[in-house]
Design a protein around this nucleic acid. Structure first.
Lengths: 134, 134
DNA sequence: ATAGCTGCAAATGCTTTGCAAGGCC
DNA sequence: GGCCTTGCAAAGCATTTGCAGCTAT
């Protein structure tokens, strides 16, 4: 998602365009798909000379997720990743570095799916391809 | 995996059959596939009137995983699940209850896989079908 | 005997929360 | 001004670790 005016984007989604949220939005939504953790994002922000607390980073990431600007992804490590690619797609998970990489939805075809438990509805399918090695 | 003599199983895998490990092995490997968290397992053990510390439960689960008796699985919740089905298979993840259910490997067919990043080897593919609803 | 375990409690890492002070409309 | 936000620090979880005491071999 590439946006020209973060403040408007935020207003459209019903959030006040505060200094902190605009800074984060500007950093995340520049047209390139990004994976960030709260920690990594906080660091990038700090490097830009912007000050904001880690708690605010967490809050903001969750709010962005709630309004559909981000997608939450968990690898197998402890940290939660937030992905700016909110479309359906999958991931490589490097078991050595903990790094996540996108796999476009088209690159994986699932030809058979099991029947869903009674009364349940499928919300989505996540495929994680674990890789390792140099 | 169904075992008759936990102590021998443990010895085969190079662990001392201590009271705690035997108790856990007996509970887990009764032939039924189980998903447990450290917490849930500790509780079951306590209900049996056996006393052991949570730290030991964690240690034991990891040791069992290291020797191939268990498989580590992460849903999207915080907790780590340990699965007694160590064969390749997938999972339903109930986003409301956090419950995990096995999907036999044959029930899902992936017909296309993306090319692996250079120098990387695929260790495995995990499919998580997110479900919700009553 | 001795190397390997266990238990406890303290430490850790990630994340959330409470609440006073501050900022947007 | 009023209500939403932020910042900090403290609290919360799940998990790990340090170390003295115990135990299987």
């Amino acid at each position: 998602m590439k946006i020209s005016h973060p403040a408007n984007l935020l207003r459209q989604r019903g959030m006040r365009p505060t200094r902190q949220r605009v800074a984060i939005a500007r950093l995340l939504f520049d047209g390139v798909d990004r994976h960030v953790t709260a920690e990594s994002l906080a660091e990038q922000i700090k490097d830009l000379g912007i000050k904001l607390s880690l708690a605010t980073v967490y809050n903001t990431l969750h709010q962005f997720t709630d309004v559909g600007l981000l997608k939450k992804v968990r690898g197998l490590s402890d940290a939660t990743w937030f992905d700016t690619n909110v479309n359906s797609h999958h991931h490589f998970f490097d078991t050595e570095s903990g790094a996540l990489t996108d796999i476009p939805a088209e690159a994986i075809t699932i030809s058979t799916l099991p029947k869903t438990p009674p009364g349940k509805v499928v919300e989505g399918v996540d495929v994680i391809v674990r890789v390792s090695g140099r």
